[in-house]
């Protein structure tokens, strides 16, 4: 019901714009976009359709009308490659606004991922819509997938006459400020404002701020926002895990197990020697390592770390948890909120 109302009002708007001079109101920019992107319009994918939606929205009211029809599944494609907006029994060309008769369009059914993108593009114009239901939908859409543009749109929107919606708008504004504001102090202030809040939406914003990843380095990285240092061999970071981290950062070679080393050495026995070391001496692990090194140097085998080399490499590095969020003030404030919340909960 709502969507058809919204559609009707948009159609009415387009028609009003079109009435004074019909063909002159055609939107050549939109026409060109449609012609170039028919494939994308027919089979849109969430991953790739974003830029096209923005371009269509930027062509003005007829572009927005087309988007509104698209998300409502009232957009059809005719055999001759025209995109039409279907309203009840009537059809109009999306680009020219001219009525289309006698066509049997294939109706387009964008999936909910694509519709989410379209809705999000239409949101800015809907936050201050006179219809309360449309304003609610706009806020729902922002709550699901807020962006930097939504932050700007929310900030510029006039206060909502409905106090409940205004409260919701303010909450969304605070959440988006935490995520997207370019000023770190504004983000910190917004975080403080949410003190004691346990809402799922707030936790959904807070937790990504405090997400960390582990890195290994020879000294503390100056440009990273370090959460803390962890010692290898502790409960949190076993020496094995520390070595895996080194390998993943290509700071160390894959480790050579005793068994693999033995097999490789056996395979390379020549004249009772391996890499210049007599087979009789290979009972000693250090001699095996030397033999393997000689094979590595000769290029016979791929380089791999012996046990001793691996232990050495683990001790030569330090291990840190760093925040994905680069600003330390923001992560400090977020940490305080999380702590605060836990205290509240215990009480």
């Amino acid at each position: 019901m709502t969507s058809s109302l919204r559609a009707l009002s948009l159609i009415a708007l387009v028609l009003m714009l079109l009435v004074p001079a019909l063909p002159a109101q055609a939107n050549p920019e939109l026409d060109a976009l449609i012609a170039e992107n028919l494939d994308q319009i027919e089979r849109p994918s969430r991953r790739t359709v974003g830029p096209l939606i923005e371009q269509i929205a930027a062509t003005g009211p007829s572009g927005e009308a087309m988007l509104a029809a698209w998300t409502d599944r009232r957009l059809g494609l005719t055999d001759d490659g025209r995109v039409v907006i279907v309203t009840g029994d009537d059809m109009a060309d999306a680009a020219t606004g001219e009525a289309v008769a006698g066509a049997d369009p294939k109706m387009l059914r964008p999936n909910s991922g694509v519709r989410g993108l379209i809705d999000s593009a239409l949101v800015a114009g809907q936050i201050s819509d006179p219809d309360r239901k449309i304003r609610v939908q706009a806020l729902d859409s922002i709550a699901r997938s807020g962006s930097e543009e939504h932050l700007v749109a929310l900030r510029d929107a006039p206060p909502d006459p409905d106090p409940a919606l205004q409260a919701r708008k303010e909450r969304l504004l605070t959440l988006l400020t935490i995520q997207y504001d370019s000023d770190p102090q504004a983000r910190v202030a917004a975080l403080k404002e949410m003190s004691g809040d346990v809402g799922l939406d707030f936790r959904g914003v807070l937790n990504p701020l405090l997400a960390t990843r582990r890195i290994a380095a020879t000294e503390a990285p100056g440009d990273a926002n370090i959460a803390r240092e962890i010692k290898p061999g502790s409960d949190e970071l076993s020496r094995e895990a520390a070595y895996d981290l080194l390998k993943s950062q290509e700071l160390a070679q894959p480790r050579l197990t005793m068994a693999a080393q033995r097999d490789i050495l056996i395979a390379n026995i020549a004249d009772d020697q391996v890499g210049g070391i007599p087979v009789a001496d290979l009972g000693d692990p250090q001699a095996r390592d030397r033999a393997y090194k000689a094979l590595e140097a000769a290029g016979t085998v791929t380089p791999a770390a012996t046990e001793a080399e691996a232990q050495e490499a683990i001790d030569a590095h330090r291990y840190y948890e760093v925040y994905a969020e680069p600003n330390p003030d923001v992560t400090e404030a977020a940490k305080a909120r999380r702590r605060g919340r836990r205290c509240d909960w215990r009480r």
Binding site: L200, R203, G204, V205, N207, P208, A211
Partner: peptide
């Protein structure tokens, strides 16, 4: 299931 969304 709903609580799974707590990390955004």
């Amino acid at each position: 299931v709903v609580a799974l969304g707590a990390d955004g």
